[in-house]
Amino acid sequence: MTQIPIWAQLINLLAAVLLLLAFAMLAQRRVLTLINLFAAQGFALASSTAIVAFATHQPHLYWSVGLTLVLKVMLLPWLLHRLILKLDVKWDVEGLINIPTTMLLGIVLVVFAFNLALPISQLANTVTRATLGIAMASVMLAFLMMITRRKAIPQVIGFLAMENGLFFAATSATYGMPMVVELGIALDVLVAMLILGVFFFQIREQFDSLDLQHLEKLKE
């Protein structure tokens, strides 16, 4: 086995941590812990971006690190925390399917994502190409979380976590996107978050609950 450089190994490790956190979010019932896990995921993402920036000498990536730290580790979790306090929704999140089944589905998704990524990552020539599968798996797990959750806030966290996975794929597998794209995405996330926040209040006004099953009544 050829020795891969230490920074690439660190990125592999952070990729694993990212996936681990995605799984932890999938298995988590409590909203507060969910937000903390999301913040931790953001931190892992920022660290891996910083390592890529340092190793490949791309100073513009530091901007993206800062953006991630500010936005995903501080601002969004803080907003979510406040939202929870305001809406008083600290309840446990019961999923549509029970946790072990969800996890089992998660494993199947991981196998699927790894197999999907294998031929793609063999085309790439970066050292950390193997992390592409993990990034894809995180995206899919976040998607699965959105599907299986009944309440609005975990769904939003799932959406944000999905974006984390995409971002990670971009930075670690291909060493970063152009700055403009990153800024655009960051702005998108922020705006989406704000709009969703407004929606939460509206939904609760309307139904006295954030249970999305109430929205099913709106079909006619």
Binding site: F23, P100, I107, L118
Partner: peptide, 16 residues
């Protein structure tokens, strides 16, 4: 969860 994480460990090992 522990069991599936352990399985995942094997998968990650194969992937990376």
């Amino acid at each position: 969860t522990a069991f599936l994480l352990a399985v995942l460990a094997m998968l990650v090992n194969l992937m990376l």
